[in-house]
Design a protein around this nucleic acid. Structure first.
Length: 104
DNA sequence: TGCTTGACTTTAC
DNA sequence: AGTAAAGCCAAGC
């Protein structure tokens, strides 16, 4: 049981049509302050964990952080979110105050 | 074994 | 408002 497994568990709990920031996921996964690990963990393992909705995890700015080395799917993440009904601002930002996942 | 890099966050100017 | 620096942990070389 590594810390990463907790991250996947949290991400898997993000409901449809909602998003969460790296920092939030980190905190829920008992990894407060280690937001970087969340992003890194997803980058390393998400392709292997097809049951993890990694596209619902974004940065604190409400923007999508994509890596130039991602599988060519540059705007894939955005497309997936739009498919779930998430509205993007003209600048490509998401209204966190409205779509942010707020667990009880 | 040790340094560099990276899907980040927060505070400060 | 945009930019800068520090804190964090793991993987790659």
């Amino acid at each position: 049981m590594s810390s990463y497994d907790r991250i996947y568990a949290i991400v898997r709990q993000i409901p449809y049509g909602q998003v969460a920031t790296y920092g939030q996921v980190a905190e829920l996964a008992d990894l407060a302050g280690r937001a970087r690990l969340v992003g890194y963990a997803l980058f390393r393992v998400s392709p292997l964990q097809d049951d993890v909705p990694w596209h619902r995890v974004i940065n604190a700015k409400g923007e999508i952080s994509e890596s130039p080395f991602r599988n060519g799917g540059d705007y894939l993440q955005r497309s997936l979110l739009e498919s779930e009904g998430v509205q993007f601002s003209p600048t490509g930002k998401i209204s966190l105050s409205h779509y942010r996942w707020q667990p009880d």
